[in-house]
Write a protein that binds this DNA or RNA. Structure first.
Length: 1012
RNA sequence: GCCUUGGUGGCGGAAUUGGUAGACGCGCUGGAUUCAAAAUCCAGUUCUUUCGGGAGUGUGGGUUCGAUUCCCACCCAAGGUACCA
């Protein structure tokens, strides 16, 4: 018999075991082992200056529970952590303060590490990576070079070395080669290739490389000298400063992700990722089948060369219904084809469109706008002239930036045609299109369409494509919405490109000279001439002979060349980090063949769904590229992925009553009076408690106001006196409530000032906001109750909760359990610290359960409790349903406490069960149970079903589906016997009151339902 | 707008395949203990009621002996929408 008389001192216990794990490297993973491997990964964080809030660890705790569980199950577990440490906030901070982002980042990481450490994660810290570390980004640069030196061969359907492409060009030109390349790539023979200058050859190769330079449209803010993200633009102006933003073309690096569009789509079938996430990738890639059709522009000037407009349509079968065309206002042809008469109007429209964001244009379907260019295209079959319009509902970046508008078959085209009185020819048989377009493919029968008459959608599509091909006006085509990814950023704090420019052409720095480290700059802003921040570096030129970075003064374009001024985007560093963890200190290669051969891929990846189409798509693209080049064995890097939901904050509000003062005469200067009032009234705030606020808002009569006024008599009297002493001549002054709707304003209060019952600590509040030092608080039942609302956690809403204070007060084990207990991992849920006392008292109760440990045989009840817990917890972990297992632990401890269980045979397995969730207390109890080694690798308890066998069941007996009473019957009783027993029961007769039931439904082991 | 997810007591949530709605916890109410408080323990807690019962899982329909669960329509909220990460 062993007695533990200590209290649950979580501070001591948690510090002790965190130290033990660090000292013994308990969680260090080996790159070879007899055990099966398991790679559990959490998305690494961006180390922001605000530190971790309680939302961050949610996914980490889940991954940690699973990792620890797998260790108990006998796996060699890799569970690493690192930092995605390049990013905009550090740069912004640098711009404001001059502090080097590397220093800020280092400090932030230090703080993150402290916060992570105190939560007791089983990370193998020896494998930490930081994307901003030159030893790490050396390999990001290396991958960039590999992409530059590759092209996509459609025949083999994979990336291949650019050298092979050059060999093909030398042999046969580019006519036979099937490669993914730019649209405007010219066609040449082997002889022509040989005759090209070196520069021309390089220019052509750029059209094939998997990373290449191209002109792409960006949101340019001239005032800030920078490119903005869509979400940095509000109503067409920059969020910071409110400067105008325009769409502008810029030469930037792009990644030819479109080459992988089909494989990225197909790969989704092989991986166990959440369906919504797969859906958003599928939609993002946006595969659609249809036809590309070429329309000739009808030229008034016969000397002009023939202009053509290419459109992509998913409904080529409706081509005879095309009554106009719409081009994106940015379309190249617009300035060329616009007639003199329409010029002014078109130019104004193009300019106006340049100010709208793409999202704006897509979201806004209510306002119909467009302008006629004055030009016409020729219908490929009817040869009729088709007017060419421009409209901002057509986006330049999707398809060809031009649509053939078929108003009878497409609602947007229909609305446009109606709005501008363009004819709407009906080409559907038996369909009324006087009110709306008809877009139902399945019930389509084509009419008024020459050779397509009477055909279905499928038949007509097939026939029209064949006909288009025959007359040379188009062909069947698969189109993807996916665009090549822009890879340049005009920022300082990112990976530099290993690129210099000779004769205007990009050249790669040899791999052996990597990493190319970020240069020092004076200022982190764009240069005065609008170049990216690296343009401020004075030491940013490449000496090809010395193979080193030298001063810009030495640039001679012979041996010393300017380096690339852009940096890589945020997603560069995160696109292969999961593989780098396998061999993070390797200086010779991104990872060794042995390391990748052993770990292969990630078994479980947990992170936020907001990365669905960013990181999670780009990293799949890079993985496929790495696979093509033979560097990795799997073309999908994560077998299973779970999205954890967001933890939102529950903001607290106090309600401020607006007061107004009225004056009957006008002796004094109006402005002076108003200023005095506004100052006086704002200096004497009145805050009302929640229920009173609700009464005031919802009431029609003035009774609550009158009551309030009585309560505030003194205050009103005081205010009126102040007014009178200031304006003694004023005849009548009255202070009253401003009763306009919404005349009560909610004001955020810091959530730490509010207790579990939503009661505000008034004294603390006054101290927190000196503005309310002398405020009047109108209470309900002696308390000030705040309003609550769920919002995103953010500093400005005063609803951010840090894990530090919680760890200090309740301990990491309580926090871990509580984060899991909040609700399903995948769902977003609000945080409310108050509830943590529940799991904390559970841990204390559990600790008390181990006060006495005896080597006695467990009884039947003990075993039943233990084994149903084992069963449920194991199922829950496998299903990532961690919230329900916390409830299961509580039930288990409640039952064992009630049973006064002291048996070691029960308490020992229970400690292992809970160890993934609450590892510190589990280790301490394990030691108490007499073990010298860590609990980390103790085998997981085995479930035995025979302890749960029941002999009887309490049947719910319902009448017409409503439960009326319960009846205990043996489980092995047959259907007929159950029916007989139920019918014979006195309560049944009571319910039936002499009626004969129509039907009796008996489901053995479940329920009895009597109908009638 | 489009795509996705969600909607159950005062709150977070549970409910295995269509079979006892509200497990577990917070909060609240009452009690024990205490000089008092904290902590702890016990009991109660969906709403309504004439104490028989009745209603009830966002709203309105439907399928079924039986629907939180399946089907149809709608409403509301959150996330994503290509340079925030």
């Amino acid at each position: 018999m062993k007695v533990n008389s200590m209290n649950y001192d979580f501070r001591k216990i948690e510090a002790k075991w965190q130290e033990y794990w660090a000292k013994h490297e308990t969680f260090k993973a080996s790159n070879n082992s007899d055990k099966p491997k398991f790679y559990a990964l959490s998305m690494f964080p961006y180390p922001s200056g605000a530190g971790l809030h309680v939302g961050h660890p949610l996914g980490y705790i889940a991954t940690d529970i699973y990792s620890r569980y797998k260790r108990h199950k006998g796996f060699n577990v890799l569970h690493p952590m690192g930092y995605d440490s390049f990013g905009l906030p550090a740069e912004q901070y640098a711009i404001q303060t001059g502090q080097h982002p590397a220093i800020t980042t280092e400090n932030n990481i230090k703080r993150y590490r402290e916060q992570l450490d105190q939560l007791g994660f089983s990370f193998d810290w020896s494998r930490e990576v930081r994307t901003s570390n030159p030893q790490y980004y050396k390999w990001t640069q290396w991958i960039f070079i590999q992409l530059f030196n590759s092209w996509y061969n459609k025949k083999s359907d994979k990336a291949e070395d650019i050298v092979d492409l050059v060999a093909l060009f030398e042999k046969e030109g580019n006519v036979i080669v099937e490669a993914v390349c730019d649209e405007d790539t010219p066609i040449f023979t082997a002889d022509e290739w040989a005759s090209f200058s070196e520069k021309t050859k390089q220019e052509i190769l750029l059209k094939y490389r998997l990373t290449y330079l191209a002109d792409t449209e960006v949101n340019w803010c001239p005032a800030l000298g920078t490119v903005l993200a869509n979400d940095e633009i509000v109503n067409g102006v920059s969020e910071r400063g409110g400067h105008p933003v325009i769409r502008k073309k810029m030469t930037q690096w792009s990644m030819r992700i479109t080459a992988y569009a089909q494989r990225l789509l197909d790969g989704l079938d092989k991986i166990d990722w959440p369906q919504p996430l797969k859906d958003s990738q599928t939609n993002w890639i946006g595969r659609s089948e249809g036809a590309s059709v070429t329309f000739n522009v009808i030229s008034s000037d016969s000397e002009k060369s023939q202009d053509t407009i290419e459109v992509f349509t998913t409904r080529p079968d409706t081509i005879f219904g095309a009554s106009f065309m719409t081009l994106a206002p940015e379309h190249d042809l617009v300035p060329k084809i616009t007639t003199e008469a329409q010029k002014a109007e078109v130019e104004a429209y193009v300019e106006a469109t340049a100010k709208r964001s793409e999202r704006d244009r897509m979201a806004d379907i209510k306002t119909i706008s467009g302008v006629f260019t004055g030009a016409y295209a020729e219908h490929p079959f009817t040869k009729e002239p088709v007017p060419i319009w421009i409209g901002d509902y057509v986006l330049a970046s999707y398809g060809t930036g031009a649509v053939m508008a078929v108003p009878c078959g497409d609602q947007r085209d229909y609305d446009f045609a109606k709005h501008y009185n363009i004819p709407i020819p009906n080409i559907f048989e038996g369909v009324d299109i006087s009110e709306e377009a008809f877009a139902d493919k399945a019930n389509t029968v084509i009419a008024n369409s020459d050779f397509l008459n009477g055909l279905s959608y499928k038949e007509a599509t097939k026939k029209v494509i064949a006909e288009l091909e025959r007359i040379g006006h188009g062909q069947g085509k698969v189109n993807y919405r996916l665009r090549d990814a822009v890879f340049s950023r005009q920022r300082y704090w990112g990976e530099p490109f290993p690129v210099y420019y000779a004769d205007g052409m990009p050249q790669m720095i040899d791999e052996e000279h990597l990493p190319l480290e970020l240069p020092e700059v004076e200022k982190y802003l764009p240069t005065e001439t609008g170049e990216p921040p690296l343009g401020n570096a004075t030491h940013w030129a490449w000496d090809r002979l010395k193979a080193e970075v030298v001063s810009n003064d030495l640039i001679d374009h012979v041996n010393v060349f300017p380096l690339e001024l852009n940096t890589m985007p945020g997603w560069a560093g995160s696109s292969q980090y999961f593989n780098r963890y396998m061999d993070p200190r390797n200086d010779e290669a991104i990872f060794s063949k042995e390391a990748i051969g052993y770990w292969q891929d990630v078994d479980l990846y947990i992170g936020g769904s907001e990365h669905a189409t960013g990181h999670l798509l780009y990293s799949r693209f890079w993985q496929k590229f790495m696979f093509d080049k033979g560097y990795v064995p799997k073309d999908e890097y994560a077998q299973k992925l779970i999205n954890q939901g967001m933890i939102t904050g529950s903001s607290a509000f106090v309600f401020r009553l607006l007061l107004e003062a009225r004056q009957a005469d006008s002796i004094y200067d109006k402005k002076e009076v108003e200023d005095f009032y506004s100052k006086l009234l704002s200096g004497n705030p009145v805050l009302v408690s929640k229920r009173i606020r609700n009464q005031l808002v919802h009431t029609q009569d003035s009774l609550p106001f009158d009551n309030l006024k009585i309560r505030l008599k003194d205050l009103f009297f005081k205010l009126e006196n102040e007014v009178k002493s200031k304006f003694p001549e004023a005849e009548l002054v009255s202070i009253d409530f401003d009763r306009r709707i919404g005349g009560i304003v909610p004001i955020h209060a810091d959530v730490s000032l509010v207790n579990a019952s939503d009661e505000l600590d008034i004294e603390a509040f006054k101290e927190w906001q000196p503005e309310y030092k002398d405020a009047e608080f109108i209470l309900e039942e002696g308390k000030y109750i705040v309003g609550r609302e769920i919002e995103k956690m953010s500093k400005s809403k005063y609803n951010v909760v840090n894990p530090d204070a919680i760890c200090e007060e309740y301990g990491a084990d309580s926090l871990r359990l509580y984060e899991m207990f909040l609700g399903p991992l995948e769902q977003s849920k609000p945080w409310n610290t108050a509830g943590i006392t529940g799991v904390h008292s559970f841990l204390k109760k559990m600790w008390r359960l181990y006060e006495t440990i005896e080597d006695v045989e467990p009884n039947k009840d003990n075993l039943k409790t233990l084994h149903k817990t084992i069963k449920k917890v194991e199922e829950d972990i496998e299903n990532f349903s961690f919230n329900t297992s916390v409830a299961t632990f509580m039930i288990c401890v409640n039952e064992l406490t009630a049973q006064k269980c002291t048996s070691k045979a029960i308490l020992e397995p229970l400690a292992i069960l809970i160890s993934p969730y609450a590892p510190h207390i589990a280790e301490e109890l394990w030691e108490l149970l007499g073990h010298a080694e860590s609990i980390a690798e103790a085998p997981f308890p085995k479930f035995e079903a025979n302890y749960l066998v029941e002999s009887s069941k309490e049947y719910p007996i319902s009448f017409n589906g409503k439960l009326r009473f319960k009846l205990e019957l043996p489980l092995d009783m047959g259907k007929d016997a159950i029916e007989a027993a139920v019918m014979a029961h006195e309560k049944t007769q009571e319910q039936l009151q002499g009626r004969t039931p129509k039907k009796v439904i008996v489901v053995p082991g479940k329920i009895v339902n009597i109908v009638g």
